[in-house]
Structure formats: structure tokens, C-alpha cells
Design a protein around this nucleic acid. Sequence first.
DNA 1: CTCATACAGGACTAAATTGGTACTGTTTAA
DNA 2: TTAAACAGTACCAATTTAGTCCTGTATGAG
Lengths: 168, 168
Amino acid sequence: MIRLNKMTDYAVVMLSHMAGDNDRRVTAAQMALDSGVPSPSVSKLLKQLSKADILTSHRGAGGGYSLDRAAGDISVAEIITALEGPIALTACIDGTDTSCGSLPLCSMSGHWNQVNRAIQGALEGVSLADMIPRPFAFEPASDELKLKITTGVQQTDIKTETRITRAP
Amino acid sequence: MIRLNKMTDYAVVMLSHMAGDNDRRVTAAQMALDSGVPSPSVSKLLKQLSKADILTSHRGAGGGYSLDRAAGDISVAEIITALEGPIALTACIDGTDTSCGSLPLCSMSGHWNQVNRAIQGALEGVSLADMIPRPFAFEPASDELKLKITTGVQQTDIKTETRITRAP
DNA sequence: CTCATACAGGACTAAATTGGTACTGTTTAA
DNA sequence: TTAAACAGTACCAATTTAGTCCTGTATGAG
């Protein structure tokens, strides 16, 4: 199973919690109370999100965090990337990796990239605004829940016509 | 980073290795030699793939494994599902598996599903045949590619700058 | 019929990740 | 000036993952 770790899961919950009004400032402590996420993890996450310009931090007394932009302008892809790095399946994705030495002819990189791009696209297609839960209290976070997919019900149409700007 | 674990990575490499001619039988030991994957892991994987009807096993002397079908009929999604279970991002924070206390209420699940489905689609779109390494067709990350994805709800045009690196 | 070959399956261990903790420093509004 | 609240770093425990080992069973060849 391809999985998102718990921290990212937390982050999405916390962010959608903030997504109502973007001027509201929430302190880490308050967020921990609201969401049930352990407070050190909340801090860690909010810091990271702030560093990634998804949140804006306000220091000092009366400070806290607020959304940097409207919820509709923040994609799930962006959140994941901020917390887990570039979206990719770990595979031979990178020419610079020589540890694939046991597989000298491995030239699958291109194809994995194709898949990776498609996944990235899927995640870019959903914004934080799309994820806002109805104004119910949700249970405190604990374990992950695995969403299962019924295959064949409705398949997404993916056209790949890719544009990758290579990183330095 | 959304990640595929190493075992699945191995599996794809091994399978594409076999994808040349599907009548060829390869023993686990031979595969370990060919691929450089540790032999106990090879065994474990081949067993699982056989159980999932991706490979056919032949017991006894002269036995081994061979592809159950043509490489073009085996999707990457199927391989991943065989080894890691249903393709999904873990989402929807809550208490236990049984109760997203508010599973019917938690409206996020629907959106995660949307994302999940798109990802599933991406993976179904690539067959094992597509992954067969072409010797020396080394393909460094292309300079320009464009990806357009229809998630089913909205259409996104993506231009991203990515840096894909493998963890050390 | 016998036997070496090769898959089947389970129990176990070492190593890597992950989630969570603790503590100290810095900024800023009141 | 001071207390609130973010910033950063180092660390530990628990889970997960990859890899090992061992015993059992089917099968084709001689």
C-alpha cells in the first residue's frame, strides 16, 4: 500500500480545520486541544508548514499561525511535498543514484517518472478547500484508517503529456 | 514522500526482468543472481506474486517461476496491490478502524477517495511491458514534459518544478 | 523407486523509520 | 519589562521493514 505517514495525515486535518477563515490565528497549543494531535507533533508540523509558506507564523504574545493563502489555493500536493519531500514512488528515479549498481541496465527511470507525474497531478487536483470537513467535531487522532478502493467502478482518465522542469 | 517499499521496487525489477519471454522459467536462486536482490527476499516475493496469479510456480526439479500472462496484461497497479494491499493513501483521522466515529459524517473520506482513485488509475495505466528496461536506453530526466490530468472533478494543468531524489 | 531440486510457509532478528519528548533560544505584543 | 508563543536541535522508544533460517512438501529425472 502506498501510504502517507501519520504526520501528513495530521497536517491535512489541522489545515482543513483552519481553512474556515484564513485570518484566524491559532496557537499550537490550541490546535493540539482542538484536534487531539499530540502537542509536540502539532508544533513540529505547524513549523514545517510555515516554513513551506502554507502557513504564516506570528511570533510573540498573541501570536499563532494562520493560513498563508485561501484554502482553495493550497493543494494537497503542496502539503504532502512540504512534509514528505517530492512526491514520488521510491524507485530508480534519479540518474545520480549509483546504488542501483546491481542493476546496471536499469532504465526504468523514465517510466516511473511517468507514473510519479500522474500521481503528482492527482494530488494537485485537490485543494485544501475540497477537503474541509463538515463543521462537526472529529474524534481525536490516533491510528490510521485505510481507505480501500473499489477498482473498476469508475476509472480516472489520465492523459500524460508531461512537462518536467529538471532540478539543478 | 509517498513511497513504495523496497520489496515492491524489487518485484517490479524482477518481473520486468522476466517479461522478455513469458515461457521462460526462472528459479528463485537464479533470479537472485540475475537481479542482485537478496535471495530470501526473492523467494518471498516470488511466492507472493505467484499467490496473486501474476506468476505461475512450477514445483520440483526443473521447476521455477514464469509469468502467468503476457507482460502487457499485467499492470503496475496489480503488482503493487499484490504486495502492499489496496492502493490508497491513509487518510481520515480518527479513532479505530471501525469507527471514524464519524465515518459517514467525515466528508474528507470522499475526497481522499477521489485522490486515491486517480492514483489507482495512474498505476493501472502502466503495464509491466511498459517497464521493460531497454538496454542502454538510459533516459535521464527529460527537460520538458507536460502532464495533464483529469481527476474526474476538475481538470488541472500542472507545471511543476521537481527535484526527485532518492533517500540516502 | 529414489533422490536431488525447487517451491511453501512460518518464526525470528537486525536495522531503519517514525512518532513523540525535552529543552533552550528568540521574537514581540501588552 | 515580561510573559506568550514560535524556532531549532538533540534525543528516545516503538513500530515497521528487510533480511535470515529452518523445516516441510511436491515433482521430474534417472
